[in-house]
Design a protein around this nucleic acid. Structure first.
Length: 559
RNA sequence: CGGGGUGUAGCUCAGCUUGGCUAGAGCGCUUGCUUCGGGAGCAAGAGGUCGCAGGUUCAAAUCCUGUCACCCCGACCA
């Protein structure tokens, strides 16, 4: 199918060609003429396209990364825009990915002693006001509920009435509302630690939105804990950061750098913010999870106090940590290719899709039975601690559409089973981490015996590939000039053209000078993504100021 | 929020500059036949408040004003 992008190119060719032709009176605006002209344009575009391998997604990543991302989301049927500005509808295939993320993470939270609870979506504005930095950080992007009733006017229009005494903010985060509960729940050191997690939706009224990456409403998980000592809270903060890194690398197959945020990038109200940062295929950084040591800031704001063993009343030490549906966006941008979504097996809604080839009616039933039994046996197997997830695609559509549909949806293993395979007692297998033509016949028994190992192999190959990509685009930078050069595209994007893919992670010494950091952001759009927790010690002159620095930090453009 | 762009069938778009027959194409969809290890071929058919609201006009997809949504570049932003 000559999809969107080539069609657009053809359109622009057409536009250029038309006026010339129309000058000749004999040609007039004849329909046939236009059609003819259109065909010419098409042929040109097509012949141009044939020089490149054809891909299921247009444009390709290299041609227009942002547009490619949107097309992958659509081709894989993950989500779509909703009638509500900035909000998305998460479709079943996209939501299934999130459900698997939730399942795995929830297990990890439980294993580290946390329990789930739920708190109100509405937060009185007075709560948000309690912590000064918090107010500054979130005030600009809050949705506010001011009325509690609708009244129909003469024309049947619904008008909000019944103004609330105190406006309610739709939660952008829950520190303050959970703090109010914690204050009631904590009296003694015996009540601590308090280890709570909440799965919820939050709203941040963003200016510019992108499916999964930044939407006005999104789904997330927020952990909130209270401890008797600063040390214990710090240990908790780091423990959950480790959980996130473990999840990112071992389930999402997405390599991450664990690090600390600079002052400028810190969570409003936190003492220290830690994060995991990943590199997307356009070499931009994406913050994939955060864990905050909140000190006693929120305990003081919410009055979370306890009597310690010596009978002294003191404020508790709290933490908070979260990951969101943004991870789905991270997953897409880490692994997907120009043929669509690529899913790491551990989070794929389906591990294996079986596609019966049912051309001959006389063998159709047999092939179906064969596939059914194969599906049943596969489901009896265990991969990564859960039953193998199998999709049996019996839809009566053309084979090619079926195959490409599943390629675009990113299913790790595809098997086609026709009469010939059945007779040979084998299946025809393709893997999403390899080319779509690299398919091979495998004996049914061998397939069953090796399928979980193959899934592991795919999981690992995706991780290795992502690591190699990051390594390829990470480099040490010693001077300001070099830094500027590294982050300056060769060809600047015009008003409507996206900027070319460039840069990456620059590891450079930084003296933690907030003003210099802010200026860099203004000039180049580059920020300090994090101060890596490991291997960042390397004394020398700061890349921005020349002042003595002790560490190398990660500079990058970011989502 | 500033600059630019786009909104016409399920999707991608043409038509708009210069207003004028019943608003078109490709893909998709439905039906039939052919084909069948593959992103099929032929034929017939269904499908459109031209984003929305005003205005100009004998006449508006086309011109004007407003408005909404989306995209790109910024600003903002865990």
């Amino acid at each position: 199918m000559p999809a969107l992008y080539s069609a657009r190119r053809a359109a622009s060719t057409r536009r250029a060609a038309l006026p010339l032709l129309l000058r000749f009176p004999s040609f007039s605006t004849d329909r046939a003429m236009i059609a003819d002209c259109r065909e010419h344009a098409m042929t040109n575009a097509e012949s141009k396209q044939q020089s490149k391998p054809q891909t299921a997604i247009t444009p390709t990543r290299a041609d227009n990364y942002a547009e490619w991302y949107q097309q992958v989301v659509r081709a894989a049927d993950l989500a779509e825009n909703s009638p509500v500005r900035g909000c998305m509808v998460i479709k079943p295939w996209g939501y299934a990915i999130w459900e698997h993320m939730q399942r795995v993470l929830d297990g990890m939270f439980k294993a580290t002693g946390h329990v789930n609870a739920y708190f109100p979506i509405f937060i009185p504005v007075s709560f948000l006001e309690k912590e000064a930095a918090h107010v500054d950080g979130f005030a600009k992007e809050c949705a506010v509920v001011t009325h509690h009733r609708l009244t129909a006017d003469k024309n049947g229009k619904l008008i909000p009435t019944g103004e609330l005494e105190e406006p309610l903010v739709v939660r952008p985060t829950s520190e303050t509302i959970i703090g109010a509960s914690f204050a009631k729940w904590v009296e003694s050191y015996r009540d601590l630690p308090l280890l709570i997690n909440q799965w919820a939706n939050v709203v941040r009224w963003e200016m510019r939105t992108r499916l999964f990456l930044r939407t006005a409403e999104f789904l997330w998980q927020e952990g909130h804990t209270a401890h008797a000592t600063a040390d214990e809270a710090r240990v908790e903060t780091m423990k959950m950061l480790d959980v996130y890194a473990d999840f990112a690398e071992n389930f999402m197959a997405m390599p991450v750098i664990k690090g600390q945020k600079t002052e400028g990038e810190r969570f409003p109200g936190a003492v220290d913010t830690f994060c995991i940062e990943a590199m997307m295929q356009d070499r931009k950084a994406l913050q994939a999870g955060t864990s905050h040591f909140l000190g006693q800031n929120f305990a003081k704001a919410s009055d979370i106090k306890f009597l310690d063993q010596s009978g002294t009343l003191q404020h508790a030490w709290t933490t908070s940590w979260g990951v969101s549906t943004r991870l789905v966006g991270a997953l897409i941008m880490t692994h997907s290719d120009d043929d669509g979504l690529v899913l790491p097996p551990k989070l794929a809604p389906a591990h294996v899709v079986i596609m019966p080839v049912l051309h001959k009616p006389e063998t159709a039933q047999q092939v179906m039975d064969y596939c059914q039994s194969l599906a049943k046996e596969l489901r009896g197997l265990t991969y990564a601690g859960v039953p193998v997830r199998v999709e049996l695609d019996t839809r009566d559509i053309r084979g090619g559409d079926k195959v490409w549909g599943w390629i675009k949806k990113g299913v790790p293993i595809r098997v086609e089973v026709g009469p010939r395979d059945m007779e040979a007692d084998s299946v025809f297998m393709g893997r999403r981490d390899k080319g779509h033509k690299e398919k091979s016949a495998v004996k049914r028994a061998d397939f069953l015996a090796s399928v979980t190992a193959i899934l592991d192999e795919i999981q690992n190959s995706l991780f290795e590939r992502a690591k190699a990509h990051r390594a390829q685009h990470t480099q040490k930078v010693e001077t300001k000039d070099e830094l500027v050069r590294y982050f300056t595209p060769k060809k600047a994007g015009s008003d409507n053209e996206p900027t070319e893919i460039h840069g990456g992670f620059a590891l450079a010494r930084f003296a933690m000078d907030a003003a210099a950091e802010a200026k860099l952001k203004d000039d180049l759009g580059v920020t300090v993504r994090c101060i890596p927790l490991e291997g960042s010690d390397d004394p020398g002159p700061c890349v921005l100021t020349g002042k003595p620095a002790t560490k190398r930090v990660v500079f990058a453009k970011a989502y």
